[in-house]
C-alpha cells in the first residue's frame, strides 16, 4: 500500500450530504476485475452528460480542482454499498484525502486499506476549509501531527493509532495478521474441540 504522511493541495468542495458509493462509482464500472483505471469514472453521473461529455459546472471538471488531491464533502460520505471500487476510483483520480463531518463505517475502513486518509472535522471547520476551495488556495494535511494547516490557522483531527501507523508506513495488514499465525492456530484448535460443527466436518 502507498504511504501517506503529508499532503498539500487546493481542495475541491462538493457540498452534498449523504454522498453514497453508487454516486462515487456507479455499478456499470464494478464489472472490472482490476483495482486501477476507475478514476475517469469517478462521480460519473454528476461528471458526464448522457452523451459522455464532461459537465463543465461539476467541480472536478474545473481547473484547478481536476488536480485536487483533497476532497471536502457533506456529512455521511461513502454511505451505501461496501464496494472498494469507491476508494479505488478516488485514488485513481488522485484524491488521497477526504474531509467530511462524518463517514459511513465500511467506506471509512476501506480508505485506510488504500492509502487514503479520511478526516473528520466539525461543520464549522468544514465551512472554513471550503473557503480555501472557493479561493483556490492550498491547504496542508499532516498525518503524523494529526492536523490540517490552512493560512495561519490549524485544526487538529483524530485518527485511530493503529490505522495511522499502517498509513504512515504503508503496511500490508495481511502480513501483520499472519505474524499472529500461532494465535490463530491455537484459536482454531480450541474452536474444533468446543464447536466442531463450525468446520462442517
Amino acid at each position: 500500500m502507498q504511504k501517506f504522511s503529508t499532503l498539500k493541495s487546493i481542495p475541491a468542495y462538493l457540498p452534498i450530504v449523504n454522498i453514497d458509493t453508487d454516486m462515487i462509482i456507479p455499478k456499470q464500472f464494478l464489472k472490472t476485475i482490476k483495482r486501477t483505471g476507475l478514476g475517469k469514472n469517478l462521480f460519473f453521473e454528476m461528471r458526464y452528460d448522457d452523451k459522455g461529455k464532461e459537465i463543465n459546472e461539476f467541480v472536478l471538471n474545473k481547473t484547478p480542482f481536476n488536480k485536487s488531491k483533497i476532497l471536502i464533502a457533506g456529512k455521511n460520505f461513502g454511505c451505501g454499498s461496501s464496494r472498494e471500487h469507491a476508494p479505488w476510483a478516488l485514488l485513481d483520480f488522485g484524491i488521497t484525502c477526504v474531509i467530511s463531518s462524518s463517514f459511513a463505517d465500511i467506506f471509512h475502513n476501506n480508505c485506510f486499506k488504500n492509502g487514503i486518509l479520511p478526516i473528520i472535522l466539525n461543520d464549522d471547520k468544514i465551512k472554513e476549509l471550503s473557503e480555501y476551495a472557493n479561493r483556490k488556495e492550498e491547504i496542508f494535511v499532516d498525518l503524523n501531527e494529526e492536523k490540517v494547516i490552512y493560512g495561519n490557522n490549524e485544526v487538529r483531527f483524530k485518527v485511530d493509532p493503529f490505522k495511522k501507523q499502517c498509513l504512515l508506513e504503508g503496511l500490508d495488514d495481511i502480513a501483520l495478521s499472519l505474524n499472529k499465525s500461532k494465535k490463530i492456530e491455537s484459536f482454531e484448535k480450541d474452536l474444533k474441540s468446543q464447536k466442531p460443527w463450525i468446520f462442517n466436518d
Partner: peptide
C-alpha cells in the same frame, strides 16, 4: 457484516479480520 475487497483478501488468507468494537 459487509467488508471491502481488501478485507475479503484478508479473510481468505487468514480467516480473521482486523476490527474495532462497535
Amino acid at each position: 457484516f459487509g467488508i471491502g475487497t481488501s478485507e475479503v483478501e484478508h479473510v481468505l488468507a487468514t480467516q480473521t479480520l482486523v476490527q474495532k468494537k462497535a
